[in-house]
């Protein structure tokens, strides 16, 4: 009734869609970096979208299935192999007892998700199973997985383990790239940028520095400046908030961001494009395209409707 970690990965944690309602206590939401990947593979398996999956970085864990189960992987492509056979992302696969899942190379992206039929039995805290590494709680004992860890399945697996022949339409999978242009909306200090800095921000490309992790990505590029230096007192920030640091460089806050921050907030990456950012790693590039709040909302509205259609479609098949 479980998976067994045969070899330790560099940073593999359980994450769901996040922990909400406790930001005022300094407790940040955590959750998957690439929420779209997580949602899609859960939907594919017929799980609740809020079910937690294993978020893996490369080199990833080697995982032994100790019981037959249906599973799906999505997000980054780490050239997964079940025993000797290559397996694709965004599809349902069947693992038999004692099958071994390995990830050979980092072909594309930086975060790969492994969901199983019915979900894992995890530590829930404040309504979420996401791992909070700071507070050492949630997921599996609030920590990253290591060799010898055994994670049980929920008792809600389908009895019939034949592989449903369904696939996710290409059009709904994020258009991942190692040099995406992501859409942003203005932040509170956007209008304080100098004209030249605004132009550079929207036309230049920026490089993701090695100093990037689940908390945030430091970018390297043309220095940006405000019309006048601003001393701000702390206020709320969110996943996707782009702040301007005192040295003129940018940081994009990611899933493990702190709840509040005092640096100028230049912009926010729109929710639909966060998965594109989530799959970036050191050395990748990024550019920004400004949209209005209305456009950002419309894009989200359309995406959520597409997901509802996908769910209905999968149920019918």
């Amino acid at each position: 009734m479980s998976i067994l970690i045969e070899k330790t990965g560099v940073l593999d944690t359980f994450q769901d869609l996040g922990r909400f309602g406790s930001r005022k206590e300094g407790i940040n939401p955590n959750g998957a970096m690439d929420k779209t990947a997580l949602r899609l593979i859960n939907i594919l398996l017929g799980n609740s979208e809020t079910e937690a999956a294993l978020e893996m970085h490369f080199p990833a864990s080697e995982i032994k299935f100790e019981k037959q189960t249906l599973f799906a992987i999505g997000g980054a492509d780490f050239t997964a192999k079940l025993n000797k056979s290559p397996i694709d992302n965004w599809q349902i696969h069947l693992a038999k007892k004692n099958d071994l899942l390995k990830f050979k190379n980092k072909h594309f992206g930086n975060r790969c998700y492994l969901a199983i039929d019915g979900g894992y039995k995890l530590d829930e805290w404040l309504g979420s199973s996401s791992t909070n590494l700071n507070a050492e709680i949630g997921g599996l004992e609030g920590r990253k997985l290591k060799k010898g860890d055994r994670i049980d399945f929920n008792n809600t697996q389908r009895s019939n383990n034949s592989i449903p022949k369904i696939k996710i339409a290409r059009s709904i999978i994020p258009k991942y790239s190692n040099f995406p242009t992501v859409r942003i909306v203005k932040g509170s200090e956007y209008n304080d940028l100098t004209a030249l800095s605004e132009q550079n921000f929207l036309s230049q490309s920026f490089k993701v520095s090695a100093n990037s992790n689940r908390m945030g990505y430091r970018l390297e590029g043309t220095e940006l400046h405000l019309l006048e230096k601003k001393e701000l007192i702390s206020s709320a920030v969110d996943f996707g908030t782009i702040q301007l640091l005192p040295d003129g460089q940018l940081i994009i806050l990611m899933a493990d961001h702190q709840t509040t921050g005092g640096y100028p907030k230049i912009a926010n990456v729109i929710e639909k494009d966060l998965p594109l950012v989530a799959q970036l790693g050191a050395g990748d590039g990024i550019g920004f395209h400004l949209v209005s709040i209305e456009e950002a909302e419309n894009l989200k509205l359309k995406f959520e409707k597409d997901l509802s259609f996908l769910k209905i479609g999968l149920k019918l098949s």
């Binding site: 509170s188 969110d238 926010n268 990456v269 729109i270 929710e271 709040i293 950002a296 989200k300």
Partner: peptide, 9 residues
């Protein structure tokens, strides 16, 4: 002001 399309300050 907005903090992305899901928050307002």
């Amino acid at each position: 002001y907005s903090v992305g399309e899901n928050a307002i300050t």
